[in-house]
Computed example of a mutant assay.
Amino acid sequence: MDIDTHVSTDTATTPLKVAVILASTRDGRFGPVVANWFLARAADHPEIETDLIDLAELDLPYTLSYRPSPAGVAQLAKVTPRLAAAEAFVVLTPEYNHSYPASLKNLMDWHHLEWQAKPVAFVSYGGVSGGLRAVEHLRQVFAELHAVTVRDTVSFHNAGALFDDEGQHKDPAEADAAAKVLLDQVLWWGQALREAKARRPYGA
């Protein structure tokens, strides 16, 4: 069996490991509603396997110190292997003051190799802007980390008014279609980069 056939077979049979990062850590946050909605859509993709990383469940050290305490090391140990194992990422982010949460920047700055040569997609939410200004800032940072950002996003403008009290989208057709496009692109890029790295490690 030649290498091309071997890579193609692996790609066809192994689900893509996608880490879904819930960025908001604020009290009363809306993020879990968006996360539950998105994970339900991802579950319809048999070729994708998701891992929800909720930053509110972590107490990461501040990168300003560069030398985490033993407690900080323990917190990083909870998340770093999960980022390393992921083949792609979907970031669920609100917009805070025209940008993204400090908790997300902290996670990004503590890691480097874990992001490299992997696709990153965005699901954003907020007021009138729908979180898109946060996404545009994130694209620049992920480019510096050698990640590949997916072109299409899912954004919820005035998000609180779009979901009912049980977390169900009131008019889901357009959002569901956008999620399918995003997931299809994550899958394409994830599989393409998996094959490329199997042939030649990134940076070699």
Score class of each variant (00 low, 15 high):
residue 6 H to W: 15
residue 81 P to F: 13
residue 103 S to R: 14
residue 132 L to V: 15
residue 160 G to R: 15
residue 61 P to R: 13
residue 25 T to N: 05
residue 18 V to N: 00
residue 42 A to L: 09
residue 182 L to C: 06
residue 154 V to P: 04
residue 71 A to G: 05
residue 17 K to N: 11
residue 105 K to Q: 03
residue 24 S to H: 02
residue 59 D to C: 06
residue 95 E to S: 01
residue 68 P to D: 09
residue 117 A to P: 01
residue 199 R to P: 04
residue 37 W to C: 04
residue 129 S to K: 12
residue 108 M to N: 01
residue 65 S to A: 12
residue 89 F to D: 01
residue 55 L to E: 05
residue 68 P to T: 14
residue 24 S to T: 02
residue 34 V to Y: 00
residue 70 P to Q: 04
residue 154 V to W: 12
residue 1 M to G: 13
residue 15 P to E: 08
residue 164 D to N: 10
residue 154 V to Q: 11
residue 148 V to C: 12
residue 112 H to S: 11
residue 41 R to P: 07
residue 48 I to V: 15
residue 4 D to W: 02
residue 183 L to W: 08
residue 177 A to L: 10
residue 156 F to A: 10
residue 190 G to S: 09
residue 84 A to L: 12
residue 35 A to M: 05
residue 59 D to Q: 09
residue 87 E to A: 07
residue 74 A to V: 06
residue 106 N to W: 06
residue 119 P to F: 08
residue 160 G to N: 14
residue 27 D to G: 04
residue 175 A to L: 12
residue 147 A to H: 08
residue 203 G to Q: 02
residue 121 A to R: 10
residue 1 M to C: 09
residue 176 D to W: 08
residue 122 F to W: 10
residue 48 I to T: 06
residue 63 T to R: 03
residue 174 E to D: 10
residue 8 S to K: 13
residue 45 H to Q: 12
residue 114 E to M: 02
residue 195 E to H: 05
residue 22 L to N: 04
residue 103 S to L: 14
residue 57 E to W: 01
residue 143 A to K: 10
residue 110 W to M: 02
residue 11 T to G: 06
residue 12 A to G: 01
residue 74 A to G: 03
residue 44 D to Q: 15
residue 9 T to P: 02
residue 67 R to T: 14
residue 188 W to Y: 14
residue 105 K to I: 02
residue 91 V to M: 06
residue 42 A to N: 00
residue 195 E to P: 01
residue 158 N to W: 10
residue 203 G to L: 08
residue 201 P to C: 01
residue 44 D to H: 15
residue 123 V to R: 14
residue 150 V to R: 08
residue 36 N to L: 12
residue 165 D to L: 05
residue 100 Y to N: 05
residue 41 R to C: 10
residue 43 A to C: 03
residue 120 V to H: 14
residue 116 Q to K: 13
residue 80 T to Y: 00
residue 156 F to W: 09
residue 40 A to M: 07
residue 111 H to P: 06
residue 176 D to M: 08
residue 50 T to M: 14
residue 77 A to E: 15
residue 29 R to T: 00
residue 32 P to N: 11
residue 75 Q to A: 15
residue 29 R to S: 06
residue 114 E to H: 05
residue 6 H to P: 00
residue 5 T to V: 11
residue 10 D to M: 15
residue 48 I to P: 03
residue 169 H to L: 15
residue 46 P to Q: 07
residue 31 G to T: 12
residue 81 P to S: 13
residue 116 Q to T: 12
residue 33 V to D: 05
residue 88 A to S: 05
residue 11 T to I: 15
residue 139 R to N: 02
residue 169 H to Q: 05
residue 84 A to T: 15
residue 138 L to I: 07
residue 39 L to M: 10
residue 184 D to Y: 07
residue 86 A to G: 00
residue 40 A to N: 07
